[in-house]
Design a protein around this nucleic acid. Structure first.
Lengths: 347, 347
DNA sequence: GCAAAAATTTAAAACGTTTGCAATTCCGAA
DNA sequence: TTCGGAATTGCAAACGTTTTAAATTTTTGC
């Protein structure tokens, strides 16, 4: 391996040129003679020259990084999409030569403090924020700072515009209802969470809208609510729904983990899915394919979304478009075996 | 919100001090009067001053980042532990004020090229490398460069020492064998992959060693091998094993995805797990809890391992210890319902 | 063959921080 | 007061790059 040249100064010296010329040649400036540019490029390649990131960032004011504050959910709980999400981001960034910074909040530290630090230390040229709450202080902060960002998800009734990409949960839940209605179901259950997340709101609205659209007064909807991360409470809520005086014939869950709980509790109660009960989830987590009889759900193609988010963010960083960029992605139905015709007789 | 001060110069000016003094005061140097230090700290906090990362990195030669080259497996395949792994790394790094850089290899780009770039551009002070092959050029490169790194996994018969943390797969597979043997099993199956990964080697060795240790000549072991990512070939290999003249009563799979395939194919063949066939996996992926009847497997607590890897790496970066750091982590058995006593009669 | 224009190259400043060394201030002792 | 030394503060260089403005070389037109 040839001796590595670490700085522009060394490279320039070895070529008998000035630092300026070498810098410009590597950047491909037209004003440098083509012959020189080629000579420099060749020498740089051969010497294994790689420009120093810090120096470049210092003078240009751009770090070439995009930031993501790691969403940590709990000591034993990791965001199930994190892997797909960062992979998608990485894929989207790499074609533009950008890299991803993952900043983590310490235990006692608020996520927004980490975000602040990332933004204000110049570590990143832009950030992506995930898991948007109905009213999210992070978005307000970023907007105030005028810092480039793209949100994965939306605020509710935002009083300002911003760049976002979201999954069309409302449409999916409407689609789920329509499918189940056409299979004869009239008594529905909805398993949801108590936290104020926008996606909860939108999905529920989508379901309600579909019901209203149908205009059938015989349609009935029961709702079971539990805190997002409280497994015990969730099981209780599901069981209240399954063992009420009249049981829904079809249950729609806000996301797969809730749907899997429904299937487990249904099995425990001696119910057969989908003969006695149809269940539909949302997210298409790995387990939904393996949990018997196979959960019908929606796939939001997180990786692809993340790739688009990366593209959007790089556009925002480079062009600062006047109009905010927004994308609504329609999730695809993954039909498996947990849904079917409504049972003939109520028990 | 008060006007934000972005540079040391501004902060110094507002205090009527020199840049030097302010810099030293913030760094907590004793030579600066205590009163001054407090005054500066107070002003910095109030003004929301955050030092510029690039400038600091340039002068100190340290970026404060740790690098990870994103392991991308394929267009639709994401390393299932990636989320846990980066979360653990983040947790380990945050207490030392370090952040994580995720660099991604473009489609046609070798992972080592990305690694090179990360190392040589000064983006990171150290890197962690995962999925170590039996002979891994990345380790050789990093060693040649004298660049701080910690490997998650080991080379086979390495001719140099380095820092690593690995899961004790050999021990786990021995434990699995002993447990199954004590349940009466004598005819074993091993489902494995054809790729030269160290973990394959070690786990197989652990199994073989346990068999030898037992010294029972009636023990028999069938091996089914398929390429790691070829689902079709995997299913074929499993079926050959299940439909051979004599079928094993217990199957140990190199990792959960293989074990789940075994369970699926066993169900398809009308076999009941664990009555007719015991199955044990490795990894404890989410689906292993949901796949009926629940897969007995081993948990390597990836997140905790990643946290330790972060600690190790930070130690290596700071202290450059003469002796390499190594940690062997024993995975814990997660007993579920896919293993049981050997069937009385062979069919 | 010469001046002007075009093409190419370079010197020097700047980015925001840390740090070796020098300068200043402060204090008590003479 | 004045001096010495300790305590405190500040100047200026350095890190490796990009960029403005200027200098140099080459080419062109007559």
């Amino acid at each position: 391996m040839p001796a590595r040249v670490t700085t522009l100064k060394e490279l320039a010296a070895s070529l008998g040129l000035s630092i300026t010329t070498v810098s410009r040649a590597l950047a491909g400036h037209q004003q440098i003679a083509l012959k020189t540019r080629e000579r420099v490029a060749q020498a740089a390649r051969q010497a294994g020259y790689v420009p120093n990131t810090a120096a470049r960032a210092l003078v240009s004011g751009r770090s070439g990084f995009v930031g993501l504050v790691l969403p940590i959910r709990g000591p034993n709980l990791v965001d199930s999409f994190l892997g797909e999400f960062v992979t998608g981001l990485g894929e989207g960034l790499v074609s533009h030569g950008a890299d991803l910074i993952l900043a983590t909040a310490a235990q006692d530290q608020a996520e927004i403090a980490v975000l602040r630090h990332v933004v204000e230390s110049g570590r990143a040229d832009g950030v992506v924020v995930t898991r948007i709450a109905e009213v999210d202080e992070r978005l307000a902060y970023l907007r105030r700072r005028g810092f480039p960002f793209v949100a994965h998800g939306r605020q509710l009734d935002s009083d300002f515009a911003y760049n976002w990409l979201d999954t069309d949960g409302a449409h999916a839940f409407g689609e789920a209802f329509d499918m189940l209605y056409d299979l004869g179901h009239r008594h529905f259950g909805l398993v949801t969470i108590s936290e104020p997340m926008t996606f909860r709101h939108l999905r529920q609205d989508g379901l309600a809208a579909a019901i209203a659209r149908r205009g059938d007064p015989s349609v009935r909807l029961d709702v079971a609510t539990a805190p997002r991360f409280d497994r015990g409470a969730r099981i209780q809520a599901v069981n209240r729904m399954l063992h009420g005086p009249e049981r829904p014939t079809a249950v729609v869950a806000l996301f797969d983990e809730l749907a899997l709980t429904v299937m487990e509790e249904a099995a425990r109660a001696g119910l057969t899915v989908p003969r006695d009960l149809s269940v539909i989830g949302f997210d298409n987590v790995l387990a939904s394919a393996y949990a018997p009889p196979g959960l019908t759900t929606f796939d939001a193609s997180i990786r692809q979304c993340a790739r688009e988010i990366a593209d959007m963010l790089l556009t925002v960083i480079a062009d600062r478009p006047a109009e905010p960029l927004t994308r609504l992605i329609r999730p695809t139905l993954v039909p498996r075996a947990s849904h079917g015709p409504a049972p003939r007789t109520r028990n």
